[in-house]
Every structure is written in structure tokens, then in C-alpha cells.
Amino acid sequence: MSDRRTTPATDRIALERLRGAVDRPAYTAGRPATVIAPVVDLCAAPDGPRERQLLFGAPVTAVDTEGAWTFVEARDDGYCGWLNSGTLAEGLPPATHRVAVPATHVYHHPDIKNGEVMSLSLGARLAVTGTEGRFACLSGGGFVPLVHLSDQPAGDPVEVAELLLGTPYLWGGNSRSGIDCSGLAQTALRACGRNCPGDSDQQFAAMSHEVPLAEIQRGDLLFWRGHVAMATGPDRMIHANGHTMSVAYEGITAALTRIESAGDGAFLGVRRP
């Protein structure tokens, strides 16, 4: 059975590449689009529960529409779901930069005292057309402090994850406003130019380089059933977790004991991305 989360098809229509593999009344090439909201929920059904989130600048392929909702496939990781159609735009230029700090603001003018348009999270992507003083000029209008942007991938996923320390835990979250365990791992790895699926079970399945717990290194991922954390060293990890309801450090031995005693899920092992 195909995984609904990564099958770009509704009951009515599927992407053309699924013809012959998925039976639907109609098929489409899809329409390229870009997320233009700071953060948007990717839902299991129109107006349904959140499964993941997409950030400003995320490229998607629009597959189907129903009322005010559009079914999309995220082009970064193939995750599929419904989002509000008003959060999408077509025909935008490709992103050139990413937000490389926990959060930033888009301003009306290149002046921090002149009012902001919106706030953007770590990992949001922007099309920069030039600079004005200490600000980047955006293709759709607005200005962002240059010091908050980068046009190069980060070098250390642990350093990226640490930027989000203290961020509140949010199931399915992918932003500075709220993030979950797999969202943190994906954000950290993607900032470094590495592919990473959206949910922890997908991440575990995608990473075949198994590492003994005694040989764990910085940047390795620890997996439990339904949970993932990132090692910051041989005896400590960082994770978004429901225990502290935040992104926090925790000793690896202490976490193994705590999670086992709570019965929250079996430890599956360590994987090196």
C-alpha cells in the first residue's frame, strides 16, 4: 500500500507520473507554485488536522483544489497535503537566499523603524534582487536585514538545531513559533543542503547508516518509535519534545531511561545522516 503522505493524489486526480500505478478518474501535470505565507499548515484533508508545515518560499506542485483548499506535493520532500489556497502564488522567481537565524522580519522599507510586513522563521526562502544599505531587496517587495540571510548552506546541523533552543513544542510544527522532533531534524539537515523526509518514521527508513550507540557522534540521529533526537556529542542530544514542551538539551542516558520508563516508545537505534 502506498503512503498517503507521499502520494500526490486525491480521490479525483493524481499527478501524471502516477498513471498506471494509481487509478484515478483524471491525471494532471500539476502547477508549480510557491508558499507566500510565513508558515502554513499542511493538512490531511481540507480544514483537517495539521500533519506538517511549510514555510515562506517553499516550492510545491498544486494537484487539486476543493473550495478554498489546494492539494499539493512539497517539492523538497514529497510530503502531500491540503493547504489554504490563499497562501500560494504562481509564477514567482526561484529563491536565492534562506533565513539563517531563528527568525527575522520583512520591512516595508529599508528602515527598522518604519514598520514590518511579516515575520519569517529559520529556513524560509527568499528571492533577493539586490541590496539597499544593510537590507536585501525582495522580488515581491519588502526588505530583510542582510545579516539574517545566507546564500550558502550551513555547515553543521547541530548548530542549526541549537538556534531553535527554547522553541515551544508543536505537533507537526516546522517553525520558530513551534516545532516537533522530526521538524527540528528536517530543519537542521535541510539548512545544510541535505535531503530529509518530514516525519520520524520516514527519516528512520531513509537513513540506512546504522551506528552503535557506543560510537555515536555529533549530528547522529537517535530514533524511538515516534520520536527523533540529534546528538550534540557522545553523551548529550537536542530534541523538540513533549517532556519539556520545547527544544531542549537532554543527556542521552537520561533520555533513554526516561522514555523507556514512561513507555513512550521503543528505542530503535542510531542513524548517521
Rank of each mutant, 00 (worst) to 15 (best):
I36D: 07
T28A: 03
R218W: 07
M118N: 05
K113M: 15
C137H: 03
D3T: 04
I36V: 15
L268M: 11
G219K: 00
S208G: 06
G142Y: 06
T253S: 08
E90D: 15
S261V: 01
A29E: 09
G172D: 03
F135D: 13
L42S: 08
L126N: 08
T34D: 06
T187P: 07
R50Y: 06
R75Q: 14
S246D: 14
A262P: 05
G67H: 03
A255Q: 02
V101A: 07
S175P: 06
R176K: 13
G178E: 05
L83V: 10
L146T: 12
T96P: 00
A255L: 02
V39R: 04
Q186I: 05
D201A: 02
I216Q: 00
Q202S: 15
P32H: 07
A103N: 09
G226L: 11
M230C: 13
G155C: 04
R236A: 14
A185Q: 03
V147W: 02
A21K: 00
A161N: 11
T187L: 03
F223K: 06
T7N: 05
R4F: 11
L92Y: 05
E90A: 15
P93S: 03
T70K: 01
V270D: 13
P49Q: 12
A100I: 06
D264C: 01
P273I: 08
I179S: 01
P25K: 14
D235G: 13
S119T: 14
L83Q: 00
M118L: 15
G265H: 05
D64F: 09
C80Y: 12
P168F: 04
T131K: 06
H227N: 02
R272E: 04
T6D: 08
R125N: 02
V247N: 01
D41H: 13
Q186K: 11
N174M: 06
C80N: 11
F135N: 11
R98D: 10
P38Y: 09
C181G: 05
A214H: 15
C137E: 15
A45D: 15
A14V: 14
R218V: 10
D156M: 12
L213Y: 14
S119C: 12
R272F: 07
G166A: 03
V60Q: 00
D41C: 02
Q53W: 05
D156P: 01
V40I: 15
L15M: 12
L54H: 07
I36E: 07
S85V: 08
L126V: 04
V160W: 02
L189Q: 10
G166Y: 08
T70C: 13
H209F: 07
L184Q: 01
E210H: 09
Q186D: 06
I238C: 03
P94G: 12
T104Y: 09
L149V: 03
P197F: 13
L120V: 09
A154E: 00
P102H: 05
A95N: 07
T167N: 09
Y249C: 02
R258N: 10
D111I: 10
A58D: 01
P153S: 13
T257E: 15
P38I: 08
T6E: 00
P168K: 11
A62K: 10
T6I: 13
G140T: 01
F56V: 04
